[in-house]
Computed example of a mutant assay.
Amino acid sequence: MASQATFKSIKSLVPLLDRVLVQRFKPETKTSTGIFLPSSTTNNPLNEGTVIATGPGAPNKDGQVVPTQVKTGDRVLLPSWGGNAIKVGEEEYYLFKDQEILAKIQE
């Protein structure tokens, strides 16, 4: 199980090295026509999210900083496991290493 930290403001959190702060998309609980979906169909977190902040990157074996592959605002595909949960008020965010992010979703 991922560890969880709590903060008062998301702006107080600055990822270091190759860490990426992501907010997972929330599953829809109601259809466009107003029908509520049963919790059995909404209890699995989606594996997509939005990048909120990134660290500057991590040094490679030669000491040169390799920037993260994603940037703030990118829509990404996430693994169903891992990440460190961070709670800000009622919102939940996750910190992943850049290499754990599976793909960038182009729109």
Rank of each mutant, 00 (worst) to 15 (best):
A2G: 08
A2T: 13
A2E: 12
S3P: 00
Q4E: 14
A5P: 00
A5Q: 14
A5I: 06
F7E: 09
F7W: 15
K8H: 07
I10F: 04
L13G: 01
L13V: 15
L13I: 15
L13H: 02
V14A: 13
V14G: 00
P15W: 05
P15H: 05
P15Y: 03
L16W: 08
D18E: 13
R19D: 12
R19G: 00
L21A: 09
L21K: 01
L21Y: 01
L21D: 02
V22C: 07
K26Y: 03
K26T: 08
K26S: 12
K26L: 13
P27M: 07
P27K: 09
T29D: 06
T29K: 11
K30L: 03
T31V: 01
T31F: 00
T31I: 01
T31A: 01
T31W: 01
S32L: 12
S32I: 08
S32C: 07
G34Q: 05
I35A: 14
I35C: 06
F36W: 10
L37T: 00
P38W: 05
S39G: 05
S39R: 13
S39A: 11
T41W: 12
T42M: 00
T42Q: 01
N43I: 04
N43A: 10
N44T: 13
P45F: 05
P45H: 11
P45G: 02
P45T: 04
L46G: 03
N47V: 06
E48C: 11
V51H: 03
V51R: 00
V51A: 05
V51W: 02
I52P: 01
I52E: 04
A53L: 10
A53N: 12
T54V: 15
T54H: 03
T54D: 02
T54L: 05
G55T: 06
P56V: 05
G57E: 04
G57S: 08
A58W: 03
P59Y: 10
D62G: 07
D62Q: 15
G63M: 10
G63Y: 08
Q64D: 13
V65S: 08
P67Q: 07
P67F: 06
P67Y: 07
P67N: 07
T68R: 06
T68F: 01
Q69S: 15
Q69R: 15
V70S: 04
T72K: 15
T72C: 11
T72D: 12
D74E: 06
R75T: 13
R75E: 09
V76H: 00
V76R: 02
L77V: 13
L78S: 02
P79N: 11
P79V: 06
S80V: 09
S80N: 14
G82C: 10
G82W: 10
G83F: 05
N84C: 11
A85I: 10
I86Q: 06
I86N: 02
K87N: 10
V88L: 07
V88P: 01
V88T: 06
G89L: 09
G89Y: 05
E90F: 09
E90C: 06
E91C: 07
E91W: 04
E92F: 11
Y93I: 04
Y94I: 01
Y94T: 03
Y94N: 08
Y94Q: 11
L95W: 02
L95E: 08
L95T: 02
F96I: 09
K97I: 04
K97E: 11
D98H: 10
D98F: 07
Q99R: 15
Q99V: 12
I101Q: 03
I101H: 03
L102D: 01
L102N: 03
K104I: 13
K104V: 14
I105N: 09
Q106L: 14
Q106M: 13
Q106N: 14
E107V: 12
